[in-house]
Design a protein around this nucleic acid. Structure first.
Lengths: 96, 96
DNA sequence: GCCTATGTATAGGCTATCTAGGGGTTCGGG
DNA sequence: CCCGAACCCCTAGATAGCCTATACATAGGC
């Protein structure tokens, strides 16, 4: 969900995705490379993102991932489910 | 965390914990038995809960779990970490 | 006598994470 | 000119926890 959300802003390469999530969450969330790249493979397989090799601003070869229409839809589903779950957990936690 | 929170209200047996979480979350959260009992074993091992066999209101033999002092402390830690994580994810999701 | 609800508990499969590596490039400083 | 830090991709293996499926047992209603 976090990867999809990050890509919803703009296409980005793996390294950038990790940096972005880390920075946006004020260093609370860290996506390790061993989780990130397998996750990106799964997203590719599901057709939620597509990838193409490009050059970065720092003149480096990198694989840029872009959110597809299906990916955008999936993001909506996952955010919705996530919020429902957080709400439910909140109810349990705040129960007398 | 949900189990600890449930036991923070009152000692309860496994079956009751599952029912309680399900009910309190408006049927959103379901703790399967294959998750629940191993989880209770881990909580016992960590010393966060203790167990004793008793009779239920329906005259049945059941193992009642009680939150220990360490368990109450752990619950606080976990709730705090959970809220920090949810806040962090929220920041990523609401980022422009 | 049988079915449903109440109860405890484990084995095995599955999935996703992290650790720990293996590559390789660019750029600035000593 | 080398070296380290930052930038970039990716995988193997260990680990951990969930779910499915199963086994077992009792109480109460029909």
């Amino acid at each position: 969900m976090l990867i999809l959300k990050t890509l919803a802003r703009a296409p980005l390469h793996g390294y950038g995705i990790a940096q972005s999530i880390r920075r946006m969450s004020d260093e609370v969330l860290t996506v390790e490379e061993g989780s990130l790249y397998p996750a990106l493979q799964r997203l590719l397989l599901q057709g939620w993102v597509k990838a193409e090799w490009k050059m970065t601003e720092t003149n480096r070869r990198a694989r840029f991932y872009t959110l597809t229409a299906a990916g955008r839809k999936q993001l909506g589903v996952e955010v919705s489910e996530f919020e429902q779950m957080v709400t439910a957990i909140g109810r349990v936690l705040r129960e007398a």
